[in-house]
Design a binder for these strands. Structure first.
Lengths: 173, 173
DNA sequence: GTCTATACGCGGATAGAC
DNA sequence: GTCTATCCGCGTATAGAC
């Protein structure tokens, strides 16, 4: 039977939702506690400081990423399709964690930065291995980043993914 | 003779540097004043609130953007080359303003979001007009966003732009 | 494990001197 | 136009009851 989501996880979920939805400035301990439906004291039992909250989030992100890379490797539609489709925000837990971490990384947090760098390296490894074409692999990764960024910033055109497919089609993909 | 940079502008410069270098959380009025070499009171004479600071920055960004679009339109290397080259952080004032605004936009600021959306529309207009190919124009814009995002997050591979050129070359550009 | 109460410094903002 | 002094609320963190 599926375990109940622990308070710890619910707090991290709340933290991520606030980071994604309103930015780091708004993701205060007060706000996180309220969003998670727990008192500030309750939150601070699980995470002794804001920094610990960030660390906990990054740690969980790494676990999620390891699973994602496995899915990408063995995806039915191939790694490229899987990567691009999951670069537009699908609303998955992993997407949310990734965007949340990028918010923190922008503040110079070392843990978040290296985690994101490692995850990107893993993705690139799969793309490059599959395509056998570094330039194309890098370009596709950039397109994925662009899709992400646009989604994340609330910009982004309606059928971005469709346009990309069209162009990749001309390249024989 | 070139005018001295006004205090107002120096404050906005400082605000942008902090936003880009350390994030919105770190860009406090105290920090901005110190970075600009002015007292908090001095800063608040020019901008009555943090919100006013953001508005001033966005307003200046729009002026810079109008100039950039003109440069893009008439660039020697063509709009695509100009766009991609200026998508990696060149360290220009405009780049800094753009990245700074994207930080603020992530916090749901309406002014920053619409300004960025308008600027992106203008860029797309030039690309699409020049290429006469919407799918390609959108894809190139995504690549530019990706370059931006990577630079911005401190990720990004060394010769990203070179790889992109290679792939675009295969498409006949 | 979760809560309430409390301490305390920081960030945003005002008043008024120079 | 720029400064210092000051106010107040918020964000982080601790102590200790339940």
């Amino acid at each position: 039977m599926a375990e109940e989501r622990s308070t710890r996880d619910r707090v991290l979920d709340a933290f991520e939702r606030l980071l994604v939805g309103a930015g780091s400035r708004a993701a205060t301990l007060d706000a996180v506690a309220a969003e998670a439906g727990v008192s500030k004291g309750g939150l601070l039992y699980h995470f002794h400081s804001r920094e610990a909250l960030v660390d906990g989030m990054v740690e969980r992100l790494r676990e999620q990423a390891a699973r994602d890379v496995e899915l990408m490797r063995s995806a039915e539609q191939g790694p490229v399709g899987f990567y691009l489709e999951t670069s537009v925000d699908t609303g998955s837990d992993f997407d949310r964690a990734l965007i949340a971490a990028s918010r923190i990384a922008q503040e110079h947090d070392h843990g978040a930065r290296t985690a994101l760098a490692d995850i990107r390296d893993a993705w690139f490894g799969v793309l490059n291995e599959h395509l056998g074409d570094e330039a194309l692999a890098r370009t596709i990764q950039l397109i994925g980043d662009g899709l992400y960024f646009d989604d994340t910033t609330g910009l982004g055109s309606p059928d971005a993914l469709g346009h990309v497919r069209k162009v990749l089609g001309r390249l024989g993909h």
